[in-house]
Design a protein around this nucleic acid. Sequence first.
DNA 1: GCCAACGTTGGC
DNA 2: GCCAACGTTGGC
Length: 150
Amino acid sequence: MNYWLMKSEPDEYSIDDLKRDKKSAWFGVRNYQARNFMRDEMKVGDLVLFYHSSCPEPGIAGIAKIASKPIPDKTQFEPGKYFDPKATSEKPIWMCVEVAFVKKCELIPLASLRSATQLESMRILQRGNRLSITPVSEPEWKFIESKLIQ
DNA sequence: GCCAACGTTGGC
DNA sequence: GCCAACGTTGGC
């Protein structure tokens, strides 16, 4: 079992949207490191901290889980902002996974994460971190689950 | 809107 | 392969 943190801008796709949809493909990732996590390391059943970014109240908004093996991100083939002219259906470049809703929680603000010494090495809190998908260690997960999630 | 940090691009 | 320029992310 691995744990992850996945960022989403709530204007684009929020925890409420996932709650409504039950399940969604995590399309639109165009960063190789983040793609590799989805393609190579995620397993069905892995748990995910759903993080709201670039919004008035950034923070953890809920929990989701990985619900599929890697699948081609179909937006790479379609006209629009995620289109990639170098991708073909035979050789897709961008892979994603499906993510399923588990629960919504009271928002855990970024400041609360920063103030917890147990989380000081968390990837998301390191300066300059911009990766939209990052691994979460088991101790970090346990701490957040038992102490912060309501 | 600002700005730090990082990834990507492209000329050489 | 180097590296400057540029674009993007994301908190504030």
